[in-house]
Amino acid sequence: MFSRTKKIYFQAVLVVVCSTSVNTVHADKPVIEIEIRDHLFWPSEVTVPANTKVKLLVYNKDPTSEEFESYELNREKVIMGNRKAVIFIGPLLPGVYPFFGEFNPDTAQGKVIVE
């Protein structure tokens, strides 16, 4: 409850600040789930539709923290051990967008394929 009102307040401020209309989160967006296990992404390849905003739900099943990072997607987020994280990506043009776990880049590799 508290966080919801706080969020609306923040959004109101932001609307004033940037004077662009902010789409609320309630619009339907495809949700893609990715798991981090043994410093690997499962699945390591996900396919998403082009020109659509997608919600990535990343579950970190490892006890250690990981940082989801992608230069191509312009995303960066620390995910603590045994936690999940929400990352919004897109809309994107068709193509391949690699992402990786910055703390274990040898193994934690994956890509988003946009079609």
Binding site: D38, L40, W42, S44
Partner: peptide
């Protein structure tokens, strides 16, 4: 090709 199987990359 880089792939995941059997808990490793």
């Amino acid at each position: 090709q880089d792939v995941n199987f059997g808990r490793h990359r």
